[in-house]
């Protein structure tokens, strides 16, 4: 069988891009692998040659500091994830569904947090809370400050899917007796949920692991990143590596599950092709 030049050119480029993707994954996951490996090592500064132990994992469950930090991080992650997803979903719908002459300006307002560095968000909310409002660091201001970035990312993610949405679908639902909220629940959300879920996930991760914003808003309340930051002075404790390893184990279990579900075609996660 003859292969035409053009066809093989396409194949060739495709494989080259696949290799680039593969290399990127290796690059991204090498440190993760290192973290997992080091969490089992006796000496985390000089982990080679290997000498394995579960000591770090035992310490995690014995020291209440890590438990507290994990719970605080989860609170901030979930709180800011939910807050940003709600705000962003409402805003995108409001902007796309109803024509407005201020649309472009409003787009810029909602995307503006992307143009402000985390460090600036952290520092400015610290300065604002402490000096203008007279508040000391608390978990609510940390959730709010983290959600600033989350809103922008969620807005971008949801926008990218919702621009393709046919709003006449809502018209149809409404003519057949669905009130606006019911419309959203029955028709809009089932179509756009992958992006809403993605938005929540991204804003959760950003807030969960955020050092700079949380650090300046929390004061003495520990989170996982701030404990990591604090322990840097004495060298990182292997316990943090152990927590990270467990988080990754959980995340990859979920991914594997997703893959199996997709493979068997039970769930499509919004993909509507063949």
């Amino acid at each position: 069988m003859t292969t035409y030049g053009a066809v093989s050119g396409v194949e060739y480029r495709k494989w080259l891009m696949a290799v680039a993707l593969g290399l990127l994954y290796i690059f991204l996951y090498a440190p993760i692998a290192y973290v997992i490996y080091a969490s089992f090592s006796e000496d985390i500064v000089w982990p080679f040659p290997p000498s394995l132990t579960l000591q770090a994992y035992a310490n995690v469950f014995n020291d209440s500091l890590y438990g507290d930090a994990l719970i605080n991080s989860l609170k901030i992650g979930v709180g800011s994830g939910v807050l940003s997803t709600l705000i962003a979903t409402a805003a995108v719908i409001g902007l796309l569904r109803y024509p407005s002459r201020y649309r472009t300006a409003l787009f810029i307002v909602f995307l503006s947090p992307l143009f402000v560095a985390e460090l600036l968000i952290g520092i400015s909310s610290l300065a604002f809370n402490a000096r203008i409002l007279g508040l000391s660091g608390n978990i609510f201001s940390a959730i709010a400050a983290n959600a600033v970035e989350g809103v922008a990312f969620s807005f971008l993610i949801i926008l990218s899917q919702l621009v393709r949405y046919d709003w006449q679908m809502d018209d149809a639902a409404m003519v057949f007796g669905a009130k606006p909220l019911r419309c959203f629940w029955e028709v809009t959300l089932p179509t756009i949920w992958p992006s809403v879920f993605g938005a929540f996930l991204i804003s959760f991760i950003l807030a969960f692991n955020n050092l700079e914003i949380s650090f300046y808003n929390l004061g003495a309340i520990p989170t996982l990143p701030s404990v990591a930051w604090g322990s840097l002075r004495f060298g990182l404790g292997p316990e943090l590596f152990a927590i990270a390893a467990m988080t990754n184990a959980l995340v990859f279990t979920i991914f594997a599950l997703m893959y199996v579900l997709m493979r068997t075609g039970i769930v499509k996660f919004g993909y509507r092709g063949t």
Partner: peptide
């Protein structure tokens, strides 16, 4: 996005 589940400092 998954590497972001591990904190910046750890990575």
């Amino acid at each position: 996005a998954a590497p972001f589940f591990t904190g910046v400092i750890l990575r």
